[in-house]
């Protein structure tokens, strides 16, 4: 994973999905993922239908196909993970050329592939149409624990600061040692981690001072209520479609 640039996730636009309140999109994403996970592995048609439902969301969000597929490719490491399954699974086996592949393993690989792809697709639609602060504000409005969203907010805010700090420290060490081997990297990482924690702590203290200086008294003011419409009706219809597919698949399996 090379980039932690949360803003790169966002695709600027003014589509109906962009202009939907973030809490609605969060609920929709989780509901869709639940439908995907509940769908039995072997009902292949159902995954096709779910993909079509996801495609509707991608279309409404006016996301270019190339952008969507590129963002989808971040799941690739797991695809490789899934590909191992036919080789380690138990029988019955099927002969493909000279290979003997486990049938449950093949279905398992399909299961991970299909479900991970659809779920990541749903999360891509969310993060591509919603700025990160909006997503956090959406969780606040959904009554997620404030401590959790507050910590997540600080984490995302300081991610790039910490990553670039870490990069500078590694560069400084590499400059003295020459190019680092992987093994030296590990040693470097170990020595740097402690220093970085102290820096993180001291930054935490300074941020807190800056908060106190502006009248902080224990609660972070919430984001203003959304100017964006909730449009629950359309969203619920979309969610319902995915649930109907899942239910039908469960009944026919």
């Amino acid at each position: 994973m090379s980039g932690v640039h949360a803003h790169a996730l966002h695709y600027h636009g003014h589509s109906p999905v962009h202009r939907l309140a973030s809490e609605v999109k969060i609920v929709a994403m989780f509901a869709f993922v639940a439908a995907v996970i509940a769908t039995p592995t072997r009902e292949v048609w159902a995954f096709g239908a779910l993909a079509a439902i996801l495609a509707v969301a991608v279309g409404l969000a006016e996301l270019p196909t190339a952008f969507f597929l590129k963002r989808l490719s971040i799941e690739l490491p797991f695809v490789i993970f899934a590909l191992a399954m036919p080789f380690v699974g138990v029988g019955p086996y099927v002969e493909v050329g000279s290979l003997s592949l486990s049938v449950p393993g093949l279905w398992g690989a399909w299961n991970v592939l299909a479900k991970a792809t659809l779920s990541v697709g749903a999360s891509v639609v969310l993060s591509a149409t919603t700025e990160v602060p909006d997503i956090l504000a959406g969780f606040d409005r959904l009554r997620a624990p404030r401590l959790l969203t507050a910590i997540a907010g600080f984490m995302i805010r300081y991610l790039e600061v910490v990553v670039s700090e870490l990069g500078r420290v590694r560069t400084a060490i590499a400059a003295r040692l020459g190019n680092l081997s992987r093994r030296q990297e590990a040693a470097t990482l170990a020595s740097v981690a402690g220093t970085m924690f102290i820096r993180a702590y001291e930054r935490g203290e300074r941020i807190h001072q800056a908060m106190l200086a502006r009248g902080y008294r224990g609660t972070i003011p919430p984001a203003a209520t959304p100017a964006l419409p909730a449009r629950w009706a359309g969203t619920v219809a979309w969610i319902a479609a995915s649930w109907v597919v899942a239910a039908a698949a469960i009944l026919t399996s």
Partner: peptide
């Protein structure tokens, strides 16, 4: 404060 990264802590 000196470091804007400390001063600007909100999203």
């Amino acid at each position: 404060f000196q470091d804007p990264d400390d001063q600007l802590f909100m999203p």
